[in-house]
Design a protein around this nucleic acid. Structure first.
Lengths: 229, 229
DNA sequence: AGTACAATCCTTGTATACAAAATACATTTT
DNA sequence: AAAATGTATTTTGTATACAAGGATTGTACT
């Protein structure tokens, strides 16, 4: 672990939540690498807190599946295997399709308007060629659809699943040749929802994930090759 | 809270996990009621442990959504509203359909054999008229299908969602008039999977949840009426 | 009698202390 | 030289101590 592990003092949250967010971010961005041990005293010193908030944060990470506990040895960052990522994507695919269908039923006119703007904003972001800007626009767009379902449990689950894919998001967006296709995919999803055509929206959402899956799998295999060398 | 909160020390698990399981069970069975506060010292005394394992268990319950944290006031058991239950069921419906479809693709001959036996066992259990026995047979049957997907993330999510419905399971099975229909529904699901007919399996799984939904909603409305009086 | 203010108590949030278990290393013996 | 045993260090698991912030209750004043 490099020492980029820096606590961000959101003064109003309990320390455990600050630590939780910090560690989660570190894991998702790859700053804490799979297999790396999370040693309590070490983390406590590094973050300038006691062991208690560290431990409570680890309990949450454990339930989220980001770390695994080894009895009497402590926590370590969970391995990301191709299998585990395929499992996540398989569920995500269905959930995103559900989101699109529910959005067809329930989206308000205001949200539709916002979705249209988000599509345009995404197209603009692509022009900037700045991956971070593109990623942000992408998240914003999908968030509108997810929120439009009005199902808070679904929102929570999708967020958790997205999280697992986080570290591959950038790799996937780096492939500029896909950018125009992404704009088109978003357009199709948007228009299906406008028409309240559940089947079309569902299919478009699934296709969207399938394409991401291709890119992510490709990246994982590349990583694996690199690790061997 | 009545004092049926009893820790089961037969485990070699860390205390936090024992406490976690104990509290979760208490919440799901309704022994700890929605809105009830979880006070650390009180629980610690009751379970004969210190505050630390209690706190760590609460962190996990928090992430599972079974308790909510009120800043500087501590944890209380989450309310179950009709809306939150509908949200869960809406997701469950889709996930169960996905399970059925994946099972069609991936189930092994051994698991198919086990599923057949589980169907028969359920029919037998119904004859016993013992709700607990029936519930157990029902869980076992569905578990075979879920496991057959080979998707561990999906298994985890379904378990979490089922959990939310736990306290209504018994009410739903109490309605004896539905028992024969349940056997028939299970049979249709089984036969669809045998034929590897994804669409039929998916439809059957959805219907199965829809029927549960009716019973659960009915029960919730009944509860609400009772509460008013 | 009702309201407002203050004091006390209760509970959480955080830190630290202590014990048990495991691992690693060194020393001794075969 | 290799293996085994014992010791020391590391790290978790659990308990407890301490401080700060609300909530409640009691008292005094209107």
């Amino acid at each position: 672990m490099q020492d980029n592990l820096q606590i961000q003092m959101n003064e109003f949250l309990p320390l455990r939540d600050v630590v939780f967010n910090t560690l989660r971010q570190a894991i998702l961005t790859g700053d804490l690498k799979p297999g790396e041990r999370l040693m309590e005293i070490h983390l406590a010193n590094k973050l300038g807190v006691s062991r208690t908030p560290i431990r409570e944060a680890i309990r949450k990470l454990e339930l989220e599946g980001l770390v695994i506990m080894i009895p009497r040895r402590g926590a370590e960052v969970a391995q990301i295997t191709e299998k585990s990522m395929m499992d996540v994507l398989e569920v995500r695919r269905t959930m995103d399709a559900l989101c699109a269908e529910l959005a067809c039923e329930r989206i308000t006119e205001e949200a539709l308007e916002a979705l249209k703007k988000a599509c345009d904003a995404f197209a603009e972001a692509v022009k900037s060629k700045d991956i971070k800007v593109i990623a942000k626009a992408d998240v914003a767009l999908h968030d509108i659809i997810v929120q439009a379902t009005g199902n808070s449990r679904l929102v929570q689950l999708i967020n958790n699943l997205s999280e697992q894919m986080y570290r591959y998001r950038f790799e996937y967006l780096k492939d500029c040749s896909r950018h125009e296709a992404l704009i088109e995919e978003h357009r199709i999803i948007y228009e299906s929802i406008v028409k309240r055509d559940k089947e079309a929206a569902s299919d478009a959402a699934k296709l969207h994930i399938d394409n991401q899956e291709q890119a992510i799998i490709h990246q994982i295999r590349l990583d694996k090759e690199n690790k061997k060398v």
